[in-house]
């Protein structure tokens, strides 16, 4: 199947009117307050609220050398939203050959408020059926009541450099791409679920062919809702830049009957878009980019002294870092 054209509307960078001068350090509290105020716009501005959110069409004169790579016009600004910087990092990474990119993610657990918008956005983006989840948020209560606190841990696929799920596959249906993303070929996967048992993070789930309308109420009042839901279920998803219309049947149509997992929204990356969980993160707790790029925000944060990786002792070398 040939890759599709961009199935998504690009989050266009704003033509920012304010000038670059400003306080040089990012005050985190300051930033959070502003970010919270500007969530609905999707992109935050140094000053002001929604009224200044102009989202013009993307300009092509952004200096991208490769015409296939989306241009990005905004120059660095102090106090800018990290999304802007990540977008810039992304555009820079996409101008490199794929084997020189190394996609990674940093999740700042202190900024995560367990709103689950990443989980939900991921479900929407990839049309995930019930029982399939790429990025749950683990919510742990620590301590004994009343002295308790909660800790939130979003869990995407770790995109391990040494992935235990790949070498167990009997048919070569899953592999590490040159840019480090672990991909599944839905057209080959036989559905043995060995990889699901082998993932130490349980980041793979199985598509059993469940649908959101299963066992839903029927009858006249429910008809409209069911029709809407049925339409949603028949919409394709675009994982790995292919069109997937999943369906049940004596021979199920993939990805029904396949293992599924987070792929850092590889289909969005090729179009210069950040992964869906990154763009929807309320607290800007999820940072994404190219770990091979020393200038990228993700590289900067991954080198923080408070950055850890899960189950480091297994030697899986995850490319997802957590800031404690």
């Amino acid at each position: 199947m040939p890759p599709l054209g961009s199935p998504h509307q690009a989050v266009a960078p704003p033509e920012d009117p304010t000038d670059a001068a400003g306080p040089s350090g990012l005050e985190r509290r300051d930033f959070l307050i502003k970010a919270a105020a500007m969530l609905a716009a999707g992109v935050a501005f140094p000053w002001g609220g929604l009224d200044v959110a102009v989202l013009p069409a993307q300009t092509s004169s952004a200096g991208a050398t490769d015409p296939a790579v989306p241009a990005f016009a905004i120059s660095p600004q102090a106090d800018e939203d990290v999304l802007i910087r990540m977008q810039r990092d992304l555009a820079r990474a996409l101008r490199k050959p794929i084997e020189q990119r190394r996609w990674g993610m940093v999740i700042d657990t202190r900024k995560c408020v367990a709103c689950m918008s990443c989980t939900v956005a991921c479900v929407m983006e990839n049309k995930l059926p019930p029982g399939v989840v790429y990025r749950p948020v683990i919510d742990t209560e620590i301590g004994t009541y009343p002295n308790v606190t909660r800790q939130f841990l979003p869990r995407p696929c770790m995109q391990c450099d040494n992935p235990p799920c790949v070498s167990v596959c009997p048919v070569n249906a899953t592999w590490k791409r040159p840019d480090g993303i672990i991909e599944i070929d839905y057209d080959v996967c036989i559905g043995c679920r060995y990889c699901i048992t082998a993932c130490p993070y349980q980041a793979r789930t199985f598509d059993f062919g469940e649908n959101w309308t299963n066992n839903a109420a029927t009858g006249a009042p429910a008809a409209l809702a069911l029709a809407g839901a049925a339409q949603y279920e028949n919409e394709p998803n675009f994982e790995y830049s292919e069109r997937w219309n999943r369906a049940n049947g004596p021979i199920p149509t993939s990805p029904v009957g396949n293992a599924r997992k987070c792929h850092f929204c590889a289909h969005r990356l090729v179009d210069g878009l950040l992964p869906m969980c990154v763009t929807t993160c309320l607290g800007r707790a999820t940072i994404f980019g190219d770990l091979n790029d020393p200038e990228a925000l993700v590289t900067e944060l991954a080198a923080s002294s408070n950055a850890i990786r899960l189950k480091e002792d297994l030697g899986t070398e995850p490319k997802v870092f957590y800031l404690l």
Partner: peptide, 13 residues
């Protein structure tokens, strides 16, 4: 991972 059992549920299947 501790807590994964109630991180995200599947009430349908």
């Amino acid at each position: 991972l501790q807590g994964l059992e109630h991180a995200y549920l599947d009430p349908i299947g």
